[in-house]
Computed example of a mutant assay.
Amino acid sequence: MKVIGITGGVGSGKSEVLRLLEEKFNCGVIRTDDVARSLCEPGEKSYEMIVKVFGKEILDREGNLDRPKIASIVFEDEEKRKALNQCTHPQVYEWVRNKVREWRTENRYSMIAVEAALMDELKEIGVCESCWYVHVKPEIRRERLRISRGYSDEKMDAIFASQLPESVFFNGCDVVIDNNFDLENVEKQLISLCK
């Protein structure tokens, strides 16, 4: 059972590629952002570590992590961002490795896709045999983000400036999925890749 990593910038269409893999190719999908979110719920290890490092000031009235407050703290402080990542990344990687092992034992899927925003995260997890980059031209990404999420140009500028250059993905990934057209085109590429 092949394990692939899927990465790409915000608005690239990773979610649609993952949906197609799930629905049409019997692919088990792991979204690392969703895993991280669940591991940051009260009572979970990442939650406890974050509260220990940042204090109870980062909790909302219900005792959950106040994500916007945390984002504002780590956005401008590299050391605090690294500290936050240390509270979450190792637990996410361990969870993913365990889930891949479980699914392989059960033999329930034809393949497994692990989605992460950063290529380095996929390498750190260490279970992916291949890394696929979902590529979209910046102007198309902008239009999609404007329509689907209502992002302003300023917000998109900030997001794009904080992301790695495309050359890093082109050089570091084995496969580039061209998502500049329609889903039918993407599906054709996936059919060829999943033979």
Rank of each mutant, 00 (worst) to 15 (best):
M1Y: 06
Y151F: 15
R104N: 13
W103M: 15
I73W: 08
P138S: 14
S46R: 08
N26S: 14
I140T: 03
R104P: 01
E102F: 06
L145H: 10
D120L: 15
E57P: 00
I125T: 05
D157K: 10
K69V: 03
L21F: 05
V51A: 13
G28Q: 03
A113T: 01
V136M: 10
Y47V: 02
K123M: 12
N180G: 12
P90D: 13
D77S: 03
F160N: 05
V10G: 00
K123P: 00
D34A: 13
I177G: 02
G8A: 06
V96W: 11
E121G: 00
D33C: 05
N98W: 02
D34V: 08
C173Y: 03
I6W: 07
V175Y: 07
I140R: 07
K52C: 15
E57A: 11
G5N: 05
E22I: 07
E124T: 11
M1N: 06
E16M: 15
E79H: 05
M119D: 13
G150F: 15
L18W: 02
V53W: 09
E76M: 12
C128R: 00
M111T: 08
L118F: 14
E166I: 10
L18I: 05
N179K: 02
W103A: 08
L21R: 01
I159C: 11
S152V: 02
D34I: 09
V114R: 01
W132A: 05
I58A: 13
C27M: 10
R97M: 13
E115T: 03
F160T: 07
L84Y: 02
I70G: 05
L145V: 04
I58M: 06
L193W: 01
S15C: 10
Q163C: 04
L122T: 02
R37H: 04
L18C: 14
N85K: 12
L190N: 02
M119L: 15
V134T: 10
K82I: 10
V100W: 03
D178Q: 09
G43Y: 07
S12G: 08
V29L: 12
G150H: 08
E129I: 03
T7E: 10
N64Q: 12
I4H: 04
F181I: 09
R108C: 10
P68S: 07
I4S: 04
K155L: 14
W95R: 10
N179T: 03
